[in-house]
Design a protein around this nucleic acid. Structure first.
Length: 827
RNA sequence: GCCCGGGUGGCGGAACUGGCAGACGCAUUGGACUUAAAAUCCAAUGGGGCGUUGCCCCGUGUGGGUUCGAUUCCCACCCCGGGCACCA
């Protein structure tokens, strides 16, 4: 018999699966649907071990669910827009389109070589105009509804690349590409109003509890950063430009009697007006300008040092009626709240530090339960709740109650209102880059911003551009693209040359898979109704916030545009850990990269898959081990050998059911093991515990290899065990399983075979080993019939010789019997 | 600082809902096969002890608690990983 030759059999089965199109699915109202999706890859050139792990997990789930009778949708595509393509163009003169499509065709071959069960007819590529056309149309709808808008804001600017960088593209204050220092710059750009959905996105998190990893939910919750409080007016002593009060935001209205000064952000337009004509003017303006020049990164890096300068202006504390000073301070953020805060040094650590630095009064207004606070000797602010003191008519109230009372009071006086703030900012989607979906708007001197009409979509990305890496986006320099006519007045106009953030494409690709060729809209609504939501989404933890939050937001927008009925796109989320080597992420610079192709060449796809699943639980990081993959290869070889070695013995027993009552004891034991393994593997696959599922198959393999046939009636047991191993292994290592299945005499492929069921009766009727403890320590074991009642078990326990020696001459205080498990005798 | 995870042999890891800690794999050691090696197979492998082939004690980050019984539950602390970090 031939040895295990993975190259040969893997190619064979991949061809057979492909020819028969066995993974192609369509809607079937008779069957329960299951949509399993892995995060699609960026076509960087070659797949890496992280992809292999991600897609192997998805493939096991897809094959298992299919065997369980589900109509399984399992698609793949390409997140094909992005900066690396443009860099390749700048550095090597290859056009981004050519580079991207060549990478895709290479990576597609690699995925096929791993035997993943995709419906390849549904492949989507986001840089294709037939894909981004729909995204542009949605952009226009959003624009019409005010969900997309243009504004000026402070961005990260790389002076060398002459482009904006997203926050995540800034590493320690430097450009991730050219390492030059990033500057802050005010720029116009397009935004999606994700903040309108802050509350719903937060609510949704509660509904995803238990189905998404808690960590991801926590990260999203923090990112949205809801805080409840109030906005309150602090009247100015001298009004400026008709403004007679400063509106502040606070989450602690209960501490307002302790507000001894007010701070304003340096970027706040009022800051400069407040200092005008004051003796502090030049000093204050110097400070404001110095802080404004710092990039966000620098300002955060300088971090803990609180700095400020007195404006020379005063306002009133609206509750105490006291006159208090107004400062400009570096720790106040323009983007959050109103950009102005009331400062309560006794009960806020930042205000406390600032007050100590500048000698401002500290007044205690919240008293802790037990201790007394002394403003002179306090070393830190008291930020917890307590009893209100020095707070006029509110004194004596618990601070939590006082918070409500003060809000009611200021609302009744018309000097403020209850207010909820979010840390979440609107999503800036403009990129001064070429390789992305053009933003479909036209600027007309007469009509202003005009969206491109639907019948003129898509705005195709022109391919005849030059890549110099200098002077901004190549699009802006392409006159034939920029020059156009206004759709409204037909006069000459200019096109927007920014492209969309690539996270926009990945915010809806999972919807496009249901009808990839649909040309009357983004997707076929009926098909979305059938397939969505995604039942199981699988990907790396690195997308915990960005992609997963954007996709949730975009789904809700599409719903509100009346395009679908979906609230949440991904019912369940599985985040797999990274693949690392020698304790570090695989990277070229560390020289610890393991190439999947090399491993496939050496061991075959099945071995690579099995190792990925066996080496660690899915959520944890997986440390690559050369010895480990050898072990996986050995395991498959042993399976191969078991089957081929037993072939002649079991060949003529096809379809013969073993009779548990007439087989030898060891055969019966094996048969029980077979069914226990079916149960274990099934339950493990349901919970995505692939490592223990494989361990269970290994155990069964060991038992079967050791098994010796005692008589003719034992042979069907051996056969059943062999067949079980093949079939349980199938979702993880499909090629070898198919080949061995054929070898043991079957013509139909395993793809079509329903999943195995275990025989519950066989497992129940077993005799059971019961552990006997004396004082909680294991002292003996007895074998009992599983039907035995408590008294029988007790009697057997007391008559056990070893137990007798432990309890001899001692008083029995208590006997605990756990049915079918153990007896504990306390003496 | 705050919020999540997580600490189990030499290593990756297992243990249902409180019930035999260390499944399975790797590595190591010894043996078989071989002229030899590789491959393969068999055996041992948490620590310590002894009357040494069978048994005893200790042992799941540390210290306490609940319980007949704790890797599992509760309290306090230590360490590691990740996220957020002047968000008022």
């Amino acid at each position: 018999m031939k040895g295990y030759n993975p190259q040969e059999i893997e190619e064979k089965w991949q061809r057979i699966w492909d020819e028969r199109g066995i993974y192609n699915v369509s809607e079937d109202p008779e069957k329960k649907k299951y949509y399993v999706l892995e995060m699609f890859p960026y076509p960087s050139g070659r797949i890496h071990m992280g992809h292999v792990r991600n897609y192997t997990i998805g493939d096991v789930i897809a094959r298992y669910k299919r065997a369980k009778g589900y109509n399984v949708l399992h698609p793949i595509g390409w997140d094909a827009f992005g900066l690396p393509a443009e860099n390749a163009a700048i550095q090597h003169g290859v056009h981004p389109a050519k580079w991207t499509y060549e990478n895709i065709s290479q990576m597609r071959q690699q995925l096929k070589r791993l035997g993943f069960s995709y419906d390849w007819r549904r492949e989507v590529t986001t840089c294709d105009p037939s894909y981004y056309k729909w995204e542009q149309m949605v952009f226009v709808r959003m624009l019409e509804r005010g969900l997309a808008y243009r504004k000026s804001s402070v961005v990260n600017w790389c002076p060398s690349c002459e482009t904006v960088l997203a926050n995540e593209q800034v590493e320690e204050g430097r450009c991730w590409r050219c390492k030059s220092r990033v500057e802050s710059k005010e720029m116009e750009g397009w935004f999606f109003r994700i903040t309108d959905y802050a509350e719903e996105l937060l609510d949704g998190i509660e509904k995803l509890r238990g189905k998404w990893p808690e960590r991801v939910l926590t990260m999203q919750r923090n990112w949205i950063g809801k805080s409840v409080g109030a906005e309150i007016d602090f009247p100015l002593i001298e009004p400026v430009d008709g403004i007679d009060a400063l509106r502040i935001f606070t989450t602690r209205p209960d501490t307002i009697f302790g507000a001894t000064f007010v701070c304003i952000a340096p970027e706040h337009p009022l800051a400069e007006r407040l200092v005008k004509g004051k003796s502090q003017e030049s000093e204050a303006l110097d400070f404001i300008n110095r802080i404004k020049k710092q990039s966000n990164v620098e300002r955060l890096a300088e971090g803990l040092k609180k700095e400020g300068v007195f404006t020379g202006s005063y306002c009133l504390n609206p509750l105490t009626g006291e006159t208090i000073p107004i400062y400009v301070a570096n720790f106040v953020l323009m983007e959050y709240g109103t950009g102005i805060i009331m400062c309560v040094p006794a009960h806020d650590q930042r205000d406390f530090e600032f007050a100590r630095e500048y000698g401002l009064p500290i007044r205690v207004v919240i008293k802790p339960e037990k201790e007394e606070l002394n403003p002179e000797s306090m070393r830190a602010a008291y930020e917890e709740s307590g009893i209100m003191v020095n707070s006029g008519e509110f004194s004596g109230l618990p601070s939590e109650v006082g918070k409500e009372k003060i809000i009611e009071y200021i609302e009744s006086k018309g000097i403020g209102k209850r207010k909820v703030n979010y840390r979440l900012r609107d999503w800036g989607i403009s990129r001064q880059r070429y390789w992305g979906a053009p933003i479909p708007v036209i600027y007309c001197d007469r009509c202003g911003v005009v969206p491109v009409p639907d019948d003129k979509l898509p705005v195709e990305l022109p391919l005849n551009v030059e890549f110099t890496g200098r002077g901004g986006s190549p699009l802006a320099k392409l006159e034939s693209f920029v020059k156009t006519t206004c759709p409204k007045c037909k006069e000459p106009a200019r096109r927007e040359t920014d492209t969309m953030d690539t996270f926009v494409e990945s915010s809806w690709y999972f919807l496009r898979y249901v009808s990839p060729d649909f040309d009357r809209g983004m997707f076929d609504r009926e098909k979305v109704r059938y397939w969505l939501p995604v039942d199981q989404y699988i990907g790396g933890i690195e997308h915990a916030i960005l992609h997963l939050l954007y996709a949730r937001f975009f789904t809700k927008v599409l719903r509100d545009l009346g395009m679908c009925e979906l609230d949440e796109p991904f019912s369940s989320l599985l985040t797999q850990g990274m693949v690392i080597k020698d304790g570090a992420k695989m990277s070229k610079s560390l020289g610890n990269v393991v190439d999947p192709d090399d491993m496939i060449k050496k061991y075959g796809a099945d071995t690579v898959r099995v190792f990925m699943l066996f080496a660690a639980p899915v959520e944890k990081d997986l440390d690559w081990s050369d010895e480990g993959i050898e072990g996986a290869f050995r395991f498959l070889n042993r399976v191969w050998r078991l089957v081929t070695d037993s072939l002649s013995r079991i060949e003529s027993f096809k379809g013969v059911r073993p009779d548990p009552n007439s087989v030898s004891d060891s055969a019966r034991e094996l048969l029980v093991k077979v069914h226990k393994t079916i149960r274990k593997v099934t339950l493990d696959l349901e919970r995505f515990q692939f490592n223990t599922a494989i361990a269970a198959i290994m155990e069964l393999l060991n038992s079967t290899s050791r098994f010796e046939i005692k008589g003719e009636e034992d042979v069907p047991v051996l056969r059943e065990s062999v067949e079980t191993i093949i079939r349980l292994l199938y979702p993880m290592a499909p090629h070898i399983s198919e080949e061995l299945w054929e070898l043991v005499g079957y013509r139909e492929t395993l793809v079509d075979k329903p999943w195995l069921e275990w025989d519950g009766k066989l497992l129940e009727s077993e005799s059971i080993t019961i552990v006997i403890q004396v004082n909680g320590r294991v002292r003996s074991q007895i074998v009992m019939d599983s039907e035995a009642d408590e008294d029988e078990v007790k009697r057997a326990a007391f008559s056990d010789e070893r137990v007798k020696s432990y309890i001899a001459g001692k008083e029995i205080k208590k006997v605990i019997v756990v049915p079918k498990k153990l007896v504990n005798i306390v003496v």
